[in-house]
């Protein structure tokens, strides 16, 4: 094994041995199963199934918890070892800082991906048994994984940029709150009170990874975005249903790379 591969394996093993991994997998498993089982997607009326509430529930579950669960171990990744002194020891070995950082990144992503697969795989089985199209589930699962990667990148970036774990965690929670609720509420207030232009709402929806994820999920379920009113109609009119999905995925992909790369740039800077 090359040093880089060894580092990745070490990070995966560390993540999997941590209690958070088992806890997250269990939480995903239980909540996913519960939603799939009782989520209202069970009844068949006139040949149609009700996904709406079940998926609104799933979207919320994913939006609230997946980011948090990705953020917390990611913010700890570097800051923790820096505080305990393990990082200095590791960097004294014949590996580059870039290799150490990338090892952590890949390891965390892989571990989180496994936890999500355990949880949503079982929920997916229940959902498929209840008639949800497997292709749709695959698209949704892909978006959930992408969302997790976004917050791994944000957490890891913060971990590299800050000096202590406490600070990294604090900043991460603030970022999470801002993206999940406060930012959107701010935009809502700006629109209602100060007449912010409607396009700003749309831009925010694509720029904020949480909202981009929601847009992708809604678009997968309802390609003409009729749920989203005139703004949804304009989006589909401009870029089409595939364009909507592609833009949302692009936004997520950028978020999954840029913060992590920023952290890498700082971390691998010669000291």
């Amino acid at each position: 094994m090359t040093p880089a591969a060894l580092l990745v394996r070490r990070e995966i093993a560390t993540a999997l041995r941590a209690r958070w991994f088992a806890a997250y997998a269990a939480i995903f498993l239980l909540s996913g199963l519960l939603l799939a089982a009782v989520g209202g997607g069970d009844a068949l009326i006139a040949g149609y199934r009700g996904f709406a509430r079940a998926f609104a529930g799933l979207v919320h579950l994913a939006l609230l918890f997946v980011p948090l669960m990705a953020l917390l171990p990611a913010t700890a990744a570097i800051a923790d070892e820096r505080e305990s002194g393990a990082l200095e020891y590791l960097l004294a070995q014949p590996v580059t800082a870039t290799e150490v950082y990338l090892g952590k990144w890949v390891g965390l992503a892989a571990a989180l991906g496994l936890a999500l697969t355990v949880g949503f795989g079982a929920a997916g089985a229940v959902a498929v048994a209840r008639g949800v199209p497997p292709g749709l589930l695959a698209v949704l699962f892909g978006q959930v994984v992408l969302l997790a990667l976004v917050f791994v990148a944000i957490g890891l970036g913060l971990s590299a940029l800050t000096t202590s774990r406490a600070r990294a965690t604090t900043v991460a929670v603030v970022v999470w709150l801002g993206l999940v609720a406060l930012g959107t509420l701010g935009i809502l207030i700006a629109f209602i009170r100060w007449g912010a232009p409607a396009w700003a709402l749309t831009v925010w929806t694509f720029v904020n990874p949480i909202e981009a994820f929601r847009l992708g999920v809604v678009s997968a379920l309802d390609p003409d975005l009729s749920l989203l009113g005139p703004a949804g109609a304009r989006i589909v009119d401009r870029v089409g249903p595939y364009g909507t999905n592609a833009l949302a995925a692009l936004s997520l992909a950028l978020w999954a790379l840029v913060p992590g790369l920023a952290g890498l740039a700082v971390f691998s800077r010669p000291k």
């Binding site: 609104a56 979207v59 919320h60 939006l63 609230l64 999940v180 609720a181 930012g183 959107t184 509420l185 809502l188 709402l201 749309t202 929806t205 949480i210 909202e211 929601r214 809604v218 749920l227 989203l228 009113g229 005139p230 703004a231 949804g232």
Partner: peptide, 8 residues
């Protein structure tokens, strides 16, 4: 309505 089913 753009923010239907948004956590916000």
């Amino acid at each position: 309505r753009l923010f239907a089913v948004s956590p916000a």
